[in-house]
Amino acid sequence: MIIDILSWVCLFAGGMLGIVGGIGIHRFPDFYSRLHAAGITDTLCAMLILFGLGLQAGFTLAAFKLALIFVFLFFTSPTASHALANAALHSGLKPKLVMNGRGVGS
């Protein structure tokens, strides 16, 4: 019973974080800062949803497969982010920077 409630909380929080990340990629001003918003959905959101599903599954093969999905996501998502940022920098896309003071103009 407690495990059930915990898993629902995890699943619900994961879904909400996904939406927050989706809002983030529309709110942030340039490509590089959008990568950070996409990072939320790749890490904590995926973590919470997979953990919640794992609690539903219990100690079965399904839980093992969920753990495997989790490991693959956590190895591939930073690699993909790094490759994207690196390719964008080499193609000459300049990030909007703020060196002193707070807030971005646009």
Binding site: G14, D42, C45, A46, L84
Partner: peptide
């Protein structure tokens, strides 16, 4: 980047 995020969400 958006397509990458779309793919991650598809897995979930």
């Amino acid at each position: 980047a958006a397509v990458n995020m779309f793919g991650t969400k598809t897995v979930l």
